[in-house]
Simulated scan of single mutants.
Amino acid sequence: MKARLLLVEDDPEIARVVRDMLKRENYEVTWATTGLEGWEDFQSTSYDLVLVDLMLPEMDGLSLCKNIRWKSNVPIIIISARKEDEDKVEGLQLGADDYLAKPFSLIELKARIESLLRRWRRYEGKQFSEQKTEYVDGLTVFWDEQKVVMQCKEIPLTAKEFAILKVLLQNPNRIFSKSELYQHVWKQADADGLHTVTVHIRSLREKLEDPVKKPRFIRTVWGRGYQFIGEQK
């Protein structure tokens, strides 16, 4: 197989045409019909490129792009019937690498996929796996082990606490709303669990001994959400 692609498209006619073309080109293709299904597929399997429609049920394409970009630098191509410049700009600002308006040529789509995959493979070849990251004030994160150490003492975090901390750490100084954190960590499109996020943030702060009024790691931006402010060594 050339590469493994994720196609997130709710129009079955378009999806089948694109999927069949890609399979003829020897790509392995997973087809998701909703944004939430696409997000779940992305988290369960490693992909080389993602094709995303904007107007999707359960989770819209822009939210899906944002979630994927929090987790990975994998190439993203938006394919959408919405041709407004605002949609294109927003999609690219959220991390998409390319934007193709419907109706589009399969030949053009194929060329753009091949171009992005070439760049992605060059990028991957230059990367190396970081086993751990150290921060000022004694915080060390061991990524492969999902372990957090504070002042040489391991901090027992739950899976959800580590997942929240990971999102914040990998996007330093970016402000995440409770809704965004809930959507990303609990993998649900609605925001019914905002209190749950508050509880987990409070628990994280207690374990890291990080006071709300004088934070070293997690700052509350009132009315907006949370951001990681720790300084990496």
Rank of each mutant, 00 (worst) to 15 (best):
K110F: 10
L208P: 01
N171G: 07
L194Y: 08
T196F: 13
E231V: 08
V197N: 00
K110Y: 06
K126L: 09
T33L: 05
G125Y: 07
S44C: 09
E114T: 02
R122S: 14
V136I: 05
Y47N: 06
L168Q: 07
I175P: 03
A159E: 09
Q151H: 14
S44E: 13
Q127C: 11
G38N: 03
V8Y: 13
K187A: 14
L157E: 13
A15T: 11
R216M: 08
A3Y: 10
D192V: 07
D10Q: 09
L208S: 07
T140P: 00
H184R: 02
I68T: 05
W120G: 11
V29H: 02
E154C: 02
E40F: 12
W143C: 01
W186S: 15
M150I: 15
R121M: 09
E28C: 08
M1N: 10
V212L: 04
K23R: 05
K207M: 05
E145T: 10
L94R: 12
V50L: 00
D190H: 12
D11E: 14
R4H: 15
V141F: 00
M150Y: 12
I164A: 08
I78W: 09
Y99F: 11
G38E: 01
V18R: 11
E84F: 01
L165S: 12
L165R: 04
V141R: 01
I77N: 03
K71M: 13
R16K: 14
G35I: 05
W70K: 13
K207S: 10
G193N: 11
L64R: 09
R119E: 06
F42W: 02
K83N: 15
S72C: 04
K126R: 10
E180R: 04
E90S: 01
K102V: 15
E124N: 13
I218V: 09
L106I: 07
Q131T: 12
E25C: 05
S72M: 03
I76P: 01
K71V: 14
H200L: 12
A191G: 10
K214D: 07
V212M: 00
T33R: 10
L22C: 06
A3G: 15
Y123R: 13
F162T: 08
E13D: 03
G38T: 04
K2S: 14
E40M: 15
V17P: 04
G138V: 00
Q43T: 10
H184C: 08
A163D: 08
W120C: 07
K233R: 09
D41H: 02
V8Q: 05
T140G: 01
N67Y: 06
H184V: 04
P57R: 01
S179I: 06
D97F: 03
I201K: 01
Y27H: 06
S179C: 11
V221C: 06
K66I: 14
K71G: 12
P211R: 00
I68P: 06
A81Y: 02
M55V: 12
R24Y: 13
A111M: 15
F104H: 08
W120S: 12
V149I: 11
